[in-house]
Structure formats: structure tokens, C-alpha cells
Design a protein around this nucleic acid. Structure first.
Lengths: 192, 192
DNA sequence: GTCTATAATTGGATAGAC
DNA sequence: GTCTATCCAATTATAGAC
């Protein structure tokens, strides 16, 4: 949908139905025949982007079997690249901006974002722990700690300052810090 | 300023100069005699709120001398109560929403928010480490880890879902988790 | 300096022809 | 189903009187 680009780029208020119709190459009346209002169109756009987010995070969390450190690094790098990507940031920015007006969208995005990735990684940690690669009493709790250490302030910095790009060095720094600290806590005694 | 409440509550686009003038009890012309445009007024409002944020965080980081665990808990509780407060969240929401339009405001807010509190706590950690209360090689790095663990997803959840209130139980859970993990890493051997 | 009144523009939504 | 043309409301900003 052509509306997606404009909504995510310019936000809800600055995106006019005129502009969307023009980009889509249809008239405004036709646009209104597909979506009953600007609010409904916005909701459809965000829900679609949310589904895409859901799929991407599921892919990020799926990692080939290796040793614990390599898997954590791989997940960490992919996760950070994804959450700091321009697409992710613009989506979060728009939904945060309109969360007072569309609280359901914000709620759903949190579920499909933070909660989903925490569950996926928590489940992986539980399996790795059962397999003896790590020693974790509470995998879900540990997953949230790992994600918190990974992100630190990177996501907030991107949301607040669009000019500050997140380069590979930023990502490597955070991954190194998070993995080191995490393994220091949860590595099996016989392995470390 | 009367504009502050309206801008923070309704966002930039939905706040009209008519409404601000009405709330302030003056006419629109008078309002324009003080601020040359809506953008300038918005900038002034945010910069003032940013100064208030700066002062609040400085207060949060100032803690009486006690043992390390009590100080970390006290800072953690106050920090989390502050960043999840309705005032802080609405301010961040508005600035994030307009960060593409006003990148300087977002940049300044990040400096006066995340970077400031990290520096303040990092400096405290350095002093406590020198005094032998903790054993920290890189205090600034440790401060960012502590803050990341404290916040985890609480701030993002508040930004995305205004209906979900952060209660004292959420705060205590995160403080407990962060302080426990942090002390497990950095407590002086002879103390722990 | 402050007000009333009013430009000038924009945007969401619809009517009616085809 | 799709278009053109239009309505109606809201908004930024200013002109001009006092």
C-alpha cells in the first residue's frame, strides 16, 4: 500500500488523504471506497507493519545450533540491527506519537515486539539450559535482562535523534557488553 | 506557560494557537507578539521541560551515603518512578513524535536525559569504587548497564500503551532484578 | 501591547455524474 | 467503482482599530 510510506515517513497528522490518493494514483473518492476513514486506513497500515515486525523477529530469534556464545552474539547482532533500522524506528516513532489516539495499536505493537522477542529468546534459553549449555534458573527473566543490556539506550537515541545513525561499531559494542555480562552470570561452571 | 499542558497532552499538530491563547487568557495576536510562530513556541516549551528534566535527574542521582545496595536501590526506585511518571512519558512521547521535524529538541533531550543520568551515576559508581564499596573497572560502562537493567522495557511499554500504568510492583521487580544482578557482578569480594 | 475580525490555506469527507 | 467538483470546518498568521 502506498499509504504506508507516507504515514511512516511523515506521521499521521501531516499525511493527507489527498497525498495518499495522489501517490496511489487513484482519486480520493476511490480511496474512501476502500477505507471508511483516515483512522481506519492508518490502523490497517500499522497492523500490516506489525505483522511484518512479528515475522522479522521470529526470524531473528531462529538461530542455528552452535555454542552458547556464538548464538547469543548472532541473535544480539541481528536484533540490534533490526530495532535500530530506519524502518523499525520510523514505525515505533509513529505509533508512539499516536498511542494516545490509537491505544490498541501501541498495545499490539508492544506485544508483537518486546514481548514476542522476549518469549522467543526465553524459550531458546530454556532449551539451551536444559541441554547443559547454560545454567539459567529463570529463562524468561534472563531473556529480558539480555535484551535490556543489548538495547541499552540505542533505541531511545534513534527515536529521539533521527540524525544520529547507529553504525556497526555501536552494535558491536553493545553486543560485546551484553554477551560478556550474560555469560559471566549464566555460563555453566564446567564450561567457563 | 499555559501552552505546556496542551502541547504535552495533545501533541504538536492537535494543539492550536487558538486553544493556547484561550487557555492563557490572551488573544492570539498577543500570543504571536511573544512567539514568532507555533514552532518557536513549541521549541520554548520543550526546552523548558527539558530543563526541568535535567533538574529532576540531578536530584534523583544525589543520594545520601549508605551502603552500596541501599544507594543503588534508592537511585533505582526514584529513577524508575520518574521515567515512568505520566509527565516524563508525555514529554518523551511528544518529542519523539516531532523529532523528525525538530531534531535539535530530540538531541538535547537525549543529552539531558539518558546521557546526563548515566554520567551522574557513573560518577557515583566511580567514587564508591574508589571508596571500596564496589569493584568496578569501568564506572561509566557499568552505569549504562545498571540503567539498562533498571528500565528494561518499562519506558517503551509506557510510551506505546498509555493505558498500562506502571505500578509500584513493576518498579520493585525491576529494581530487585537490576540491583541483584549488578551487585553479583561488582560487589567487593570481601563484602559479598 | 492588546484586541476583534479576517484573510488564505488546507484537509477530511461527500455528492452526483458516468 | 471511479472520477471531478465541492462542502465545511479548522488552523496559521496578519491587518488595523484602540
Amino acid at each position: 500500500m502506498a499509504a504506508q510510506g507516507h504515514f511512516l515517513e511523515s506521521g499521521y497528522a501531516l499525511t493527507s488523504m489527498d497525498a495518499i490518493a495522489k501517490i496511489a494514483g487513484i482519486s480520493k473518492s476511490t480511496l474512501y471506497s476502500y477505507f471508511e476513514s483516515k483512522e481506519h486506513l492508518f490502523g490497517a497500515v500499522i497492523q500490516q507493519a506489525r505483522q511484518s515486525l512479528h515475522d522479522s523477529l521470529t526470524t531473528v530469534a531462529a538461530v542455528g545450533e552452535q555454542d552458547a556464545e556464538k548464538m547469543l552474539r548472532q541473535i544480539g547482532e541481528q536484533f540490534l540491527r533490526f530495532v535500530t533500522s530506519a524502518d523499525s524506528i520510523t514505525m515505533y516513532r509513529v505509533v508512539i506519537a499516536e498511542s494516545a489516539h490509537f491505544p490498541d495499536l501501541g498495545h499490539d505493537l508492544f506485544q508483537s515486539g518486546s514481548n514476542l522477542i522476549a518469549d522467543l529468546i526465553g524459550e531458546s534459553l530454556r532449551r539451551w539450559s536444559e541441554a547443559g549449555l547454560l545454567s539459567i534458573a529463570n529463562p524468561m527473566h534472563a531473556a529480558r535482562q539480555f535484551l535490556a543490556l543489548l538495547k541499552s539506550d540505542l533505541q531511545l537515541r534513534c527515536l529521539l535523534d533521527p540524525r544520529r545513525v547507529t553504525d556497526e561499531a555501536d552494535i558491536q559494542t553493545n553486543v560485546e557488553s551484553a554477551v560478556t555480562l550474560f555469560l559471566g552470570l549464566y555460563r555453566q561452571p564446567e564450561n567457563g
